[in-house]
Simulated assay, not measured.
Amino acid sequence: MLEQHYLTFKLLAQTLSYTKTAQRLFMTQPAVSQQIKRLEAEVGVPLVRYQHRQLQLTAAGDALATYLTQLTVQNDKFMADLRQPRPAPRLLLGATMSLNTVFLPRLLPILRHQYQQIVSKIGNTAQILQQLRQGQIDFALIEGNFDKTEFDYQVIRREPFICVTGTGNPLLHDGTVYRPHELVQETLLIREPGSGSREILLDWLASFNLQLTDFTQRIELGDPQTIMTLLQQGFGISFMYASLAQSSLAQQQLRQVQLPALQLEHELYLIYRKGTDDTDLTQQLLKILR
């Protein structure tokens, strides 16, 4: 809040008259003059002057008057906002392509009552991590590997990583249990570089001395839903989190390939920049996600 001698000068800058200023403030003219002199002594420069018997602002006075007007506008807006219910801040969420269809439909119906704006960004693990670094998102849902010294994080849960194919694939007809080396004749549908799912698959293949080039045919795709559609149409095999395939498995659009060697679970994470943890919000997100 401005002190009275600043308010007096602000009004004087509008009226350019000691008499009118005194009348509006219900003060005497000498009292107005005294407050202006006090302000000039405080700022150390003349604020008003007479030219041809007309009161005018000096350059410093004009600058101060402009500043006080802006300050008053900001103060009035702040006080108006303070007296009214304030909208909740926006929430910036990021999720990998493998997790957004699983978790965002669970989060958004609940969080929409708390936030005026929710922005969700979708990408692969590398893209989401970069957006988190740059402050484009506040929280990220990822399944891939990341530098745990760079970010704070919470484990949502451990998720099975499975091999799936379309219901018409001959792999399913005889109930055979397969070993990893026996799958290389299949067309492999795989995510693009930077995807967490791809990194997990590559690490698992390497544990059996296998690599992508061992597969007869590979189709690289950046969208998990496209992979699901192609699998349902009979295109090869793919590896993904069980929750991503859960609906298609339940509707018998996809089937799980019996692969005992794939006893693999991976952690799904809620991560955020160090030092930005909102404990209440973090716990709320975890409660919904788990």
Rank of each mutant, 00 (worst) to 15 (best):
K10V: 06
S17P: 09
F26K: 15
T28H: 01
Q29W: 00
V32Y: 01
Q35G: 01
L39E: 00
E40M: 05
E40N: 00
V43S: 00
G44C: 03
P46L: 01
P46E: 03
P46C: 01
L47I: 07
L47Q: 03
R49T: 10
Q51I: 11
Q51L: 11
Q56T: 11
L57C: 08
T58Y: 06
D62F: 11
A63N: 09
A65R: 08
T66L: 12
T69L: 12
T72H: 10
Q74R: 07
A80V: 03
A80G: 00
A88E: 10
P89A: 15
L91D: 10
T101V: 08
P109L: 03
P109M: 06
Y115A: 13
Q116T: 13
I118Y: 07
I128F: 08
L132I: 10
Q134R: 14
Q136V: 07
L141D: 05
N145K: 01
N145E: 13
F151G: 02
I156S: 04
I156A: 05
E159D: 07
P160C: 00
F161I: 00
G168Q: 04
L171N: 01
L172W: 00
H173L: 13
T176I: 11
P180T: 03
P180I: 04
Q185N: 12
E186T: 01
P193K: 02
P193W: 00
P193Q: 05
G194F: 00
L202G: 05
W204N: 08
A206I: 03
N209K: 00
L210G: 04
D214Q: 07
F215D: 06
T216M: 05
R218M: 12
R218F: 04
L221S: 07
G222H: 04
Q225F: 14
Q225S: 15
M228S: 15
T229N: 09
T229Y: 12
L230I: 06
Q232H: 04
G236V: 14
G236E: 11
M240S: 09
S248V: 03
L249Q: 04
Q251E: 15
Q251R: 08
V257H: 02
P260F: 08
L262N: 04
E265S: 14
Y269H: 07
I271W: 09
G275W: 08
D280N: 09
D280C: 07
Q284G: 09
L285Q: 06
K287T: 13
I288V: 11
L289F: 05
R290I: 06
